[in-house]
Simulated scan of single mutants.
Amino acid sequence: METDVDVAPGPDGRHVRTDAELIAGARQAPECFATVFDRHYGRIYAYAARRLGRDLAEDVASETFTVAFSRIGGYDTARPDAAPWLYGIASNLIARHGRAESRRYRALARLAPEEAVNGHDDAVAGRLDAATQRGRLAAALARLSGGERDALLLVAWAGLSQLEVAAALDVAAGTVRSRLHRARQEMRTALGEGDL
């Protein structure tokens, strides 16, 4: 999903306001924040749903924007795109549900691959392989520290760059690189690839 954070003209030739401009405007006119919400809610919800399941995702996504709105005074308007900031808030909220997330990954890891029925050999084999891999990856995700899991999933599921992850988690870029390295090693081990 794309966001409209470019300073280039929009399709109608008018200037499309960046998230930073909208947040700055929301300090005086709170309704400006609605556009930031509209741009990013779907992505934040999808990220939370992948990590916690749909039951908690709506609460986390809504609370993300409530917290963000309460902190607009401290937003760094030198950053035109608010996505990393919002993912950082969402990651902190997801951490509060750490047990639920770990239970989710352990449950996924325990799911037995579906038994073959009626002989669709290649299709069934592909589904069994995918289910097995999913279980291994879920178990590996459950073993990661919260920081490693956040870094990996912000890159893999939210599509953030390492620098954006550093901004989202308010850590140094080197810390993100270290966390990603450890997380990727764990994923490789889970898939039986070792130290490739």
Rank of each mutant, 00 (worst) to 15 (best):
118 N>Q: 15
110 R>S: 05
149 R>L: 08
152 L>K: 01
112 A>R: 13
120 H>M: 11
157 W>G: 06
119 G>R: 10
126 G>T: 09
113 P>I: 08
161 S>W: 02
179 R>I: 00
144 L>Y: 00
119 G>C: 15
165 V>F: 01
164 E>I: 02
124 V>L: 11
160 L>A: 02
190 A>R: 02
162 Q>A: 05
162 Q>L: 10
188 R>H: 01
116 A>Y: 11
134 R>E: 15
134 R>Y: 13
148 E>Y: 08
181 H>I: 13
166 A>G: 07
184 R>H: 02
160 L>T: 01
146 G>S: 06
167 A>Q: 07
131 A>I: 14
185 Q>W: 14
144 L>R: 01
128 L>D: 09
141 L>V: 12
122 D>P: 00
145 S>H: 10
161 S>F: 07
188 R>S: 04
156 A>K: 06
148 E>T: 04
139 A>P: 11
122 D>A: 14
164 E>A: 04
171 V>L: 08
138 A>M: 05
170 D>C: 12
149 R>W: 04
165 V>H: 03
164 E>W: 10
147 G>N: 08
154 L>T: 06
129 D>T: 13
180 L>W: 02
185 Q>T: 09
171 V>C: 15
123 A>L: 10
134 R>W: 14
123 A>V: 10
134 R>F: 14
135 G>V: 03
141 L>F: 09
150 D>Y: 08
134 R>I: 08
142 A>H: 07
123 A>D: 06
188 R>K: 04
178 S>E: 10
142 A>Q: 00
141 L>N: 10
182 R>N: 05
133 Q>N: 12
193 E>D: 11
186 E>D: 04
150 D>C: 14
118 N>L: 15
161 S>D: 05
144 L>Q: 01
116 A>K: 02
173 A>T: 12
179 R>E: 06
137 L>N: 05
138 A>W: 10
125 A>Y: 03
173 A>K: 04
171 V>T: 13
156 A>S: 00
143 R>Y: 12
187 M>N: 01
138 A>P: 07
121 D>G: 15
121 D>V: 12
130 A>S: 12
177 R>F: 12
168 A>M: 01
119 G>Y: 15
145 S>W: 09
148 E>K: 08
186 E>L: 03
123 A>I: 12
136 R>L: 05
125 A>E: 01
129 D>V: 15
